[in-house]
Computed example of a mutant assay.
Amino acid sequence: MTQTTAATVTETADDIAAREFLAFTLGKEEYGIHILKVQELRGYEEPTRIANAPDFIKGVVNLRGIIVPIVDMRIKFHLGTPTYDQFTVVIILNINGRVVGMVVDSVSDVITLTPDQVKPAPEMGTALNTDYLIGLGTVDQRMLILVDIDKLMSSSEMGLIDSVAA
């Protein structure tokens, strides 16, 4: 008779959290990012524009003494002209110790996905380079485009963002 320990039966909180995604919308598409990357959610406020910054960097805001660059994901993904209303949300992210704000159309909920609910991203000419994708998550009739936010905020872009925040 084999004996199982509680450690082999139960999952750690980190294992569960690693499969939790914050769902948000950009246009008609629904995206998801790992919940552990999210520091907080804020309503949209007009950032202070920085000269010579790329279009997708809307500017910076002062968040409790920290200068936070704000990236508009609609502009970044070439999804048309962004509009800002009461549903527009800034997701404050902590990426490798850097704080960055990400403007999205709206945030819906936190979704837990099992490994079998995540499928590899198909290779196709989309606005979003598939290098930035973890895969596609499916829950009932919903499909989430799961974004690897660490890769998306790549070193060259983080350099641009850092120079704006400095």
Rank of each mutant, 00 (worst) to 15 (best):
E20C: 15
K151Y: 05
T8Y: 03
S154E: 10
L128T: 14
L36N: 06
T88M: 01
Y84V: 07
T4R: 06
P47G: 04
T10G: 07
E45L: 07
H34K: 10
K37A: 05
P47I: 01
M124V: 11
R74Y: 07
L26F: 05
R19A: 10
G65I: 07
L41P: 05
I35R: 00
I134Y: 10
L128Y: 05
V100W: 00
P69M: 11
D140F: 03
I75G: 00
T138I: 12
D85S: 12
M102G: 00
V71T: 09
L160C: 05
M153R: 01
L79K: 09
D72N: 13
T48G: 02
P115A: 07
R19H: 15
L63V: 04
K119T: 15
D162W: 01
T25N: 13
D85Y: 07
I35C: 02
M102S: 04
T10Q: 12
I145C: 14
Y44K: 01
L146D: 05
V60A: 04
T114R: 15
T114L: 15
V71F: 00
F87H: 13
V110Y: 08
M73L: 15
E29K: 12
V90Q: 05
A127F: 09
I75C: 00
H34V: 02
L41D: 06
M1R: 05
V38W: 00
A165I: 09
T83Q: 11
E30G: 04
K28Q: 13
V68W: 08
I145K: 04
E11N: 08
V89I: 14
P122Q: 12
T48L: 08
S155Q: 13
A17C: 07
I35P: 00
I111R: 13
